[in-house]
Design a protein around this nucleic acid. Structure first.
Lengths: 165, 165
DNA sequence: CTTGAAAAGAGCGGCCA
DNA sequence: TGGCCGCTCTTTTCAAG
């Protein structure tokens, strides 16, 4: 996983319609080795999948809600049941177990308030939740699927050490 | 935008490596009309882009943080300056203006706490912020880029009317 | 890693129903 | 609209340096 791999990944996570020839050109490689690198990155699971990103507004899905959940049951079994229930709810795009005061955090995308209310009722009916807080997005300022990859080669690994040697 | 278009979108937002022939087969269409529909969906911007989704953990980006921001300046100009500053920070994957007590919400992806601290310092140095709350994810339970599209045809538009006619 | 090339497959567009 | 049939480009694989 060198600097060239990172360049390839940076290109592909921005635009996966690029041909191998184009990618090779931009990273300074010919088709064959470029293709081999991409194959390897896919086999290694670094490239997880290739998807089409759709415009939620054009599909009538204009409401994004961040939902904070607190529970009184912190067992593994409870989480598994909760995870199963949430996995079956397609309006939940992201779902994390959190540190701190909030136990779980969800990012939910729905058409409108009415649709959110329907979702909310299903959510709280799925399992007993101690507290659920919904925060509504008014405006999407930025949204990307691209991870922050080191632009230039990470350098000679400048390492900051806590204690001393 | 009929049921077939929705089927095509549902397929493509799950797996954009499918060939037009495969998609056509699954939606009951031959290549040409299927291809034309996809072209139209792209031209209309319903399909925004095609990207490779990378595995953050395999790239050493294991820490997701939800950041709530409060400001004392609620002017358009302030937001524009904030938006510009945040747009230049690649670790911010999502950035929304919110309704309610929290003014802005960010989803941030970084390597570790040290990287988050560096990001945090840059964030608060970019503009005066009244309050910044960081919530750290311990475990990713679910994460998808796929929007909740109506699975079956939305039906004969069952409309719920508030008043009565 | 590079060039070159060939076979298989997919995208693309014209034309007809 | 959708379907059939080519033309072209890309992807994928191989050989040799």
């Amino acid at each position: 996983m060198d600097a060239i791999d990172l360049k390839i990944l940076a290109l592909l996570q921005t635009d996966a319609t690029l041909s191998i020839a184009q990618i090779g050109e931009r990273v300074g490689l010919s088709q064959t080795p470029c293709w081999k690198r991409i194959q390897r990155l896919e086999a290694d699971g670094v490239i997880d999948r290739r998807v089409a990103v759709l415009d939620p507004v054009k599909l009538g899905l204009g409401l994004t809600v961040f939902v904070s959940v607190e529970t009184s049951d912190h067992s593994r079994e409870w989480l598994e049941r909760f995870a199963t229930a949430v996995a079956a709810m397609p309006e939940v795009l992201e779902f994390y177990r959190m540190a701190g005061d909030v136990d779980y955090m969800l990012r939910v995308v729905v058409a409108d308030m009415q649709a959110y209310d329907a979702f909310y009722k299903r959510l709280i009916a799925s399992l007993p939740l101690k507290n659920v807080t919904s925060r509504f997005a008014m405006e999407k300022v930025k949204s990307t699927t691209a991870l922050p990859l080191p632009a230039s080669p990470p350098g000679p690994t400048l390492r900051v050490v806590a204690g001393g040697e």
